[in-house]
């Protein structure tokens, strides 16, 4: 339990790419999240502080920031866990253009989902009977293990390959592509595989596993990307790619 007079020494990024950290002392509270800290500053000290959030319960994926150097969802990140010495450094996500303060431009992140053919392409129409998919089949299990992505870009911001190769589709888009490659109802498996192979796709991944370490939903984009590499190799051997 924090003492009532206890203060959190917080440094918050202000401005654009050429901005800097500004210090705020924020009263420590029980069960305080990093998002609570940012909100306190915005409500009590400086209403011009820009940041993003919506659901506050870990569902919408809009509140991710860099907290003491690591990308995290801030609404579910307790101060007690990440700032044992009462020091917090809050910055916008890495690898994405900064709009202002803690807000980044997510456009390229989501554009890459489209480039990775992240849209389901049905093979049946609404007049056909509902597809029966066995939930225990290996393909469905592989897809299910990767499906709960909230689009927070924490993985994208943790991946060095994204920084080295701006064209790299990144862990989230590839993870999405993998869920569709393993979806037996999908009609564009081959086109999707050709969209995700090569230097900007799954073969650029160096298996640093930082995405998997950081994903707040405990997904493993690394496993999905390895799956794509395998599927691509098999398709190439069969002459399908």
């Amino acid at each position: 339990m924090p003492r009532p007079e206890q203060l959190l020494h917080t440094r918050v990024w202000r401005g654009g790419t050429d901005g800097q950290f500004q210090s705020y002392d924020v009263p420590r509270q029980e069960s305080q999240t990093v998002l609570d800290v940012v909100t306190w500053i915005q409500r009590r000290v400086d209403p011009s502080l820009a940041y993003r959030f919506a659901c506050r319960v870990g569902m919408c994926g809009s509140c991710a920031m860099t907290v003491n150097g690591l990308p995290r969802w801030t609404c579910r990140t307790h101060v007690a866990r990440v700032a044992p010495d009462d020091r917090l450094e809050i910055a916008p996500l890495a690898n994405l253009p900064i709009v202002r303060d803690l807000v980044v431009d997510m456009r390229e992140f989501f554009d890459k989902w489209r480039e990775a053919k992240g849209q389901f392409v049905p093979t049946a129409t609404r007049h056909d009977p509902i597809a029966r998919v066995c939930p225990d089949s290996p393909a469905r299990r592989a897809a299910d293990a990767a499906i709960q992505c909230i689009g927070c870009a924490v993985c994208y911001a943790s991946c060095d390959v994204v920084a080295w190769n701006p064209k790299y589709l990144g862990p989230a888009a590839l993870n999405r592509a993998w869920t569709l490659v393993r979806d037996e109802r999908d009609g564009e498996r081959r086109q999707r595989l050709s969209a995700v192979v090569g230097d900007a796709g799954c073969h650029a991944c160096h298996t640093h596993t930082l995405c998997t370490e950081r994903c707040p939903m405990h997904l493993s984009p690394t496993t999905s990307i390895a799956g794509l590499k395998r599927a691509a190799a098999i398709a190439a051997l069969r002459g399908e790619l």
Binding site: G69, P92, A94, N95, P97, V104, S158, T207, T209, L210
Partner: peptide
């Protein structure tokens, strides 16, 4: 845009890559 932070990297698979 800011770069990924060095504090983000301390992980065995990253060392394997290096």
């Amino acid at each position: 845009m800011i770069r990924t932070d060095w504090r983000n990297r301390g992980h065995s698979a990253y060392w394997a890559f290096l």
